[in-house]
Design a binder for these strands. Structure first.
Length: 266
DNA sequence: AACTCCACCAACCGCCGTTGT
DNA sequence: CACAACGGCGGTTGGTGGAGT
């Protein structure tokens, strides 16, 4: 009869994660790798739902995360991808290494939306607002989807504010359909997109996988995580910056910062 | 200094497609 | 095949801190 419940919901902690919890989660994934999230809280000694553990890991603790504001290039890419994909944040995030869907979604809602509106562009349809107003008479936005915007999306350009309609790929961007053709179009018309879409398979297939114990990050150009992390965790209480170390790569520093921030909060 | 407003973002909620029993 | 949980996703909320008054 079906599966066992994910968590009993009773005695499950909610709210912000503490440094201690982060430590436990990191330690667990270090030694066991990413396995079934349902088992993680129990095995890691966390009073959290597996879902919550996964979220914490993917959005905050993952060592390959970039932090800080999106760069201009990233922002432009998000806008472009949003015009093509709509609110499919996970798909968009897959094109921006080191960024999470949550982060992109937040950035969209807090920054990009306003920016587009200021420029007179509808953030939903990527159409100019005036033209938008006239077209709404015949079609509703409620059902807006990448398939329905006919590819006449606006591209944010601080330089000239021109649209990219002319040089963007066309219409009916149904990714499940003739995707290879679509990707060709995108790549042909946009160098940045070309670069990213060029790695389509690797990016798309490279669901973030933490190496199991004994493996290291050599294949992704990262240092051996489990070698570093033991003392990393021990050091978190001091704060890495206090050491004046600048020899860490971003990955390690990010993890330090994450832990430190969590530690400072509590 | 105290208060209010606002922006930011981590985390939760609920839905949906997939998958195990 | 039916059912129920899993995993993932997108929408939304609530806490926090900074800016403005």
């Amino acid at each position: 009869m079906g599966r066992q419940p994910c968590c009993d919901k009773l005695g499950v902690k909610k709210g912000p994660w503490t440094a201690e919890e982060d430590k436990k989660l990191i330690n667990f994934i270090l030694t066991n790798g990413q396995c079934c999230w349902r088992a993680v809280p129990k095995l890691a000694g966390l009073r959290r739902c597996g879902k919550s553990c996964r979220l914490r890991w993917t959005n905050y603790l993952r060592p390959d995360l970039k932090r800080g504001l999106l760069t201009e290039a990233e922002e432009q890419l998000v806008i472009d991808l949003h015009a093509r994909l709509g609110n499919r944040w996970s798909k968009i995030a897959a094109r921006l290494p080191g960024r999470t869907d949550n982060e992109i979604k937040n950035h969209w809602n807090t920054h990009i939306k306003k920016k587009l509106l200021k420029m007179g562009i509808d953030p939903v349809t990527h159409e100019p607002l005036q033209r938008e107003a006239s077209t709404t008479k015949t079609s509703s936005h409620a059902d807006h989807s990448p398939e329905s915007d006919n590819g006449h999306h606006m591209q944010l350009s601080e330089n000239n504010g021109t649209t990219s309609s002319e040089n963007s790929c066309s219409p009916t961007e149904n990714f499940s359909g003739d995707e290879s053709h679509l990707l060709d179009n995108i790549c042909d018309n946009d160098p940045l997109m070309s670069c990213l879409w060029g790695n389509e398979t690797s990016l798309a297939d490279a669901s973030w996988e933490f190496p199991a114990a004994g493996q290291n990050f050599d294949n992704v150009g990262l240092p051996s995580w489990d070698e570093n992390c033991a003392w990393l965790l021990e050091c978190q209480d001091f704060g890495i910056q206090d050491f004046g170390f600048d020899c860490f790569n971003n990955v390690e520093v990010n993890t330090f910062n994450a832990l430190e921030m969590a530690g400072n909060k509590h």
